[in-house]
């Protein structure tokens, strides 16, 4: 157990402890003695809140789109993902690291990317400048596209396994016997069960996307930046005054994420225990 705590809780405790000391001026290069100045400037400034909001936006859009695509794919043809060529192919995208996915999206969706070249050849655009700004854009379109590419196959595998384990095919047949149309059975039986069972995974994936680093680093804009990128940018700036702010953001982000996970998963387990 000592080894377990030493490799899990201890690094986190030390990390948060040092972040608190550095951010309150009690440790680090140029520490000035106890001060809440850095906390004040992060909490009253707009940069952190915009970054947190942008991270939530990216995570919500990515999970929402991937969820819709995966549910449509599994509900329309669940057996296709259990056997045959698609059941093998669906695992292939999981072998792509985030860094490579970001590189691919950049080379495909940027102004001089593959998609832009194709539409130019088809006569739909007159050059690079006519192609939509999907990479390094303020709405995070490129970041969302990269996360959707990574999340959709993962959700298809998850839902396909849940479909089989929860024997949803039999429930759908029962619903059909009782007079439900295919759409009604999907909307009232299959999708609610899939979403309910996958809820903890969806929450954790949401947190994973919010904290992602490589993809927004390559595909994000200068402002707003996702939380991880903002933290590291402040940490690596030459201006030492920015370093305490990086630690403030790190601590605030951790509090936000732990709070969200505990609230959402506790609420869900509470709902479950009532049923």
């Amino acid at each position: 157990m000592a080894l377990f705590l030493g490799l899990t809780a201890l690094p986190l405790a030390f990390g948060i402890g040092y972040s608190l000391l550095h951010s309150t001026g009690l440790a680090g290069i140029g520490s000035e003695g106890f001060t809440l100045r850095h906390w004040g400037s992060v909490l009253t400034g707009s940069e952190f809140w915009r970054s947190l909001g942008f991270s939530c936006w990216v995570a919500a859009c990515s999970i929402g789109l991937a969820l819709g695509l995966a549910l449509a794919a599994v509900v329309r043809g669940p057996e296709r993902w259990q056997r045959g060529i698609l059941s093998w192919l669906i695992y292939l995208p999981l072998t792509l690291p985030a860094m490579v996915v970001a590189f691919l999206v950049f080379q495909t969706l940027s102004g001089a990317g593959f998609a832009s070249r194709l539409v130019y050849r088809l006569g739909l655009t007159g050059g690079i400048e006519d192609f939509p700004n999907w990479v390094n854009d303020p709405w995070g379109v490129g970041i969302i596209a990269a996360h959707v590419l990574m999340a959709t196959p993962f959700f298809i595998i998850l839902f396909s396994n849940l479909y089989q384990n929860e024997r949803l095919g039999e429930y759908a047949q029962l619903a059909a016997t009782l007079g439900a149309t295919a759409r009604q059975s999907a909307r009232r039986v299959v999708v609610p069960v899939l979403l309910r069972q996958a809820f903890p995974t969806l929450v954790l994936y949401f947190i994973f996307v919010m904290g992602s680093y490589e993809i927004p680093l390559l595909l994000g804009s200068q402002s707003p930046q996702m939380v991880s990128v903002l933290t590291i940018r402040k940490l690596q700036r030459f201006d030492l005054a920015d370093m305490p702010q990086a630690y403030v953001i790190g601590v605030l982000y951790t509090v936000f994420v732990v709070g969200a996970v505990v609230f959402l998963l506790r609420k869900k387990s509470g709902e479950r225990s009532l049923v």
Binding site: S228, Y247, V257
Partner: peptide
């Protein structure tokens, strides 16, 4: 460790 983004964990442990 999964709730804590790995890169933020690294930032806090760098010292």
């Amino acid at each position: 460790p999964y709730v804590f983004a790995p890169v933020i964990l690294a930032a806090t442990l760098q010292f």
